[in-house]
């Protein structure tokens, strides 16, 4: 290991402090178009992750790797119960539960993004919080209904010679 500071290859980029190189800049300059470069900026920030099974997970991103495996700390899982029609009388409901340290395998991620911590709970003002087990039950019921519907659809499409790429594990 050399004791000299790490110098980015393109010296046209301004260098704030040569002794403590900014890891993000290193990635962005020479590894610009990689998975890691896209994720490194979000480390130690509050992020949300949508998983392939439809879960919404919120936590502080601690580490990640080239497969986009993520490790989140202080994670909470939130269920938003979808409302079909925008009715004023029916309150939109959500539920939360604490999950602690969460390691997500990269292939199960649909999308992830940085949250603005000042605004992250704003949208919850219009939503009513309900206990998690209740929300979970309702969610699994609606997912089962959706799966049934999709399977029927796939069957119908097949009779017409069309293939449907529905996977019952992808409920996002």
């Amino acid at each position: 290991m050399s004791t000299s500071p790490i110098q980015p290859e393109q010296t046209s980029i301004q260098q704030k402090d040569p002794l403590t190189p900014n890891v993000e800049d290193l990635y962005l300059e020479s590894y610009a178009f990689t998975t890691a470069a896209a994720i490194v900026g979000s480390v130690d920030r509050k992020i949300f992750v949508v998983l392939r099974d439809g879960r919404n997970v919120f936590g502080i991103l601690r580490t990640f790797d080239q497969f986009a495996n993520l490790v989140l700390q202080d994670t909470i899982e939130r269920i938003y119960l979808e409302t079909e029609e925008a009715q004023e009388s029916v309150p939109k409901r959500f539920a939360e539960t604490y999950r602690g340290v969460f390691m997500i395998r990269g292939e199960n991620v649909v999308m992830m993004g940085e949250l603005d911590i000042d605004k992250e709970d704003d949208h919850l003002q219009e939503w009513q919080q309900i206990p998690f087990p209740e929300a979970e039950k309702e969610l699994t019921a609606s997912q089962a209904a959706k799966i049934k519907e999709q399977k029927l659809k796939s069957k119908n499409l097949l009779t017409k010679g069309l293939i449907s790429d529905f996977a019952p594990s992808d409920l996002y």
């Binding site: 099974d53 602690g100 390691m103 395998r105 199960n108």
Partner: peptide, 8 residues
Amino acid sequence: IKYLRLPE
């Protein structure tokens, strides 16, 4: 594996 939960 989908995900793992580890000790705090």
